[in-house]
Write a protein that binds this DNA or RNA. Structure first.
Lengths: 164, 164
DNA sequence: CCTTAACTTCACAAATTTCTGAAAGAAGCG
DNA sequence: CGCTTCTTTCAGAAATTTGTGAAGTTAAGG
């Protein structure tokens, strides 16, 4: 007998969720957001309600709330309201995943700003100032290049998955 | 009167160090490694001894040791022994900076592995399995592209700074 | 309107991380 | 070889972070 979509092996799901979340944690993301994101990735529809997340991950509504607030802020998850209900659903779009990566831009921008101030403060003609300037140069270079890379990915993806 | 290289305005140095370190912390790096790295970036020669770091940042030798152990592990700093001394010097090469970024490869590799297992466990023909597969596809794509990007940077840099 | 389901916020307890001082461990130099 | 200087390790105190229960807020549905 073939399994319906709703009773997929919870064991397999949980194994993936915890394993993938562990990798995200190792990369610096907090635990609850990592677990919630992984659970959404592994869901059938790409959406889960707050209650489903709490039950599946064995965490309190408060923990779900905190995790989702963070994920929404960095654009890895979006929130939807089911019409005619007070349930909220959280959704992962497969393409938000890399938009989130692009959002590293904001971080890099601040690094660049700090470096610029450093060059000014220490003097562009000092050894340290030159080092900072070259570092800044590197960030400016990759920033531009990353944008182009994302463009290439979009092209590749549209062509491969026939879905703009 | 013009300042010698050794008595640059400590105020400016400190301002840059703490400001830049704060940005690194925000990006997920621990505080001491962030401060130590920033101090090295802002040093004249790109090298500092353990004692100099401790004094400048007002931290214990133990803290320096821990921070440097981490930085060396992720290849953001290398250790050198001054010949004929038991002093150790820590150095930041301007090009280790981006080699460290490349080291993100290791992290991405583990993500890919976890995703592959997920696809296998959930079934490549399920909605969730397809979502994971596309995410995996994305990582494989950018992994290749990042390598090429670093190559372009090296070329650009050599040409601009006349220093292979 | 009032009730009730659902999410959020808040204060706190628990767990974890961070940094230090003290002691132990290398390595130059006489 | 032993003294001295520098670095590392380790146990623990202090600070921070994390997750919870409980109270508070919002909005659907009668």
């Amino acid at each position: 007998m073939t399994e319906s979509r709703t009773d997929r092996d919870p064991e397999s799901v949980s194994r993936f969720v915890e394993h993938f979340a562990a990798q995200l944690v190792e990369a610096g993301m907090a635990r609850m957001p990592s677990r919630v994101f992984a659970a959404l990735l592994a869901s059938d529809t790409g959406t889960l309600t707050s209650a489903e997340l709490g039950e599946q991950l064995r965490i309190s509504p408060a923990a779900v709330s905190g995790a989702v607030r963070y994920l929404a802020q960095v654009h890895m998850v979006s929130r939807e309201r089911e019409p005619g209900s007070r349930r909220e659903r959280y959704r992962v779009h497969s393409d938000q995943w890399y938009e989130a990566l692009t959002n590293r831009e904001a971080i890099i921008k601040r690094w660049e700003e700090a470096l610029r101030e450093g060059v000014a403060g220490l003097g562009a003609d000092t050894p340290a100032g030159r080092r900072l300037a070259e570092t800044l140069d590197f960030f400016e270079f990759i920033e531009k290049d990353v944008a182009e890379m994302m463009e290439r990915w979009r092209t590749y993806r549209e062509q491969k998955y026939q879905r703009p």
